[in-house]
Computed example of a mutant assay.
Amino acid sequence: MLEAPPVNLVGCYPQVSIQGFQYLVDFGAGETIRYHRVNKDKTCSCDTPFCEAVEVVRQYLQAGGQRAPEPAIIPTCPICGAKTYPDRNWDGKYTKSPGWRCEKGGLRHFLEAKCERIKKQLAENPWLIPPAPGYPGVKRDEVMTWEECEAINRKTFLETGYDPTA
C-alpha cells in the first residue's frame, strides 16, 4: 500500500489564526479584503451578512483547530446600566482592576463608580494606623487637614496679636 506524501499547508489560503478573542482569517494577497476578524458570535469585521470567513472558521474548528479564548466578561455600567468597553489607560496599577468606559457616560461613570468604591472602603476601615497591643491607633477623622490647622493658627494670631509673617 502506497502512502500519500505529506501536504505542505503553509502557503495555502485561507489561513486561520487566533488574535485576542477572535479568529483572524487571511484570504491571501489577491483578495480585496485580505484579513477578516471573526468573533465567537459568528460575526465578521467586514459586516457582510454571510461572510465566507465565518464558514472558514467553522471548518477550521471542525477539523480540530485551536479555539480562541473566552473574552473577559465586561460588566454593565454600575451608574446607568449601559454597556461598557475596556480602557487600558485606566487599568488599576496596584489593584489590577480593569479600566473601562461607559457607552453613555464615558470616563465620568468609571470615575464615579471608582469614587463610590473608595468611599465604601473608607467607611468600612476608618483607621489610618490600626491599633496594636499597647497603641490605640489613629483614625482618619482624628488627623487635621491643613485648612483646619490654618484656621486654628489664624484664630490664635487674632487673639494674641502675634503675626509670624510680620
Rank of each mutant, 00 (worst) to 15 (best):
M1V: 13
P6N: 00
P6K: 02
V7L: 14
N8L: 04
V10D: 12
C12E: 12
Y13M: 10
V16H: 07
S17E: 12
I18M: 06
G30M: 08
I33W: 10
Y35N: 07
N39S: 15
N39M: 11
N39Q: 15
D41W: 08
D41M: 07
T43C: 06
T43N: 04
C44N: 05
C46T: 05
E55A: 14
V56M: 03
V56W: 03
R58D: 11
R58K: 13
Q59R: 13
Y60K: 04
L61Q: 11
L61C: 08
Q66Y: 00
A68E: 03
P69E: 13
P71V: 03
A72Q: 12
T76G: 13
P78L: 00
G81I: 01
A82L: 01
T84G: 01
Y85R: 11
Y85G: 02
N89Q: 14
D91K: 03
K93A: 14
K93D: 11
Y94K: 13
T95E: 07
S97F: 07
C102Q: 09
E103Q: 06
G106V: 03
L107C: 05
L107H: 14
H109L: 07
F110H: 15
L111P: 00
E112G: 00
A113F: 01
C115S: 08
C115D: 08
E116S: 10
R117F: 07
K119P: 01
K120I: 02
L122K: 13
L122M: 14
A123I: 07
E124P: 00
P130Q: 06
P131N: 10
P133C: 05
Y135D: 14
Y135M: 12
P136S: 02
V138M: 02
T145M: 03
T145I: 02
E148C: 00
A151R: 14
R154I: 05
T156K: 10
T156P: 00
T156A: 14
E159T: 03
T160S: 15
P164H: 04
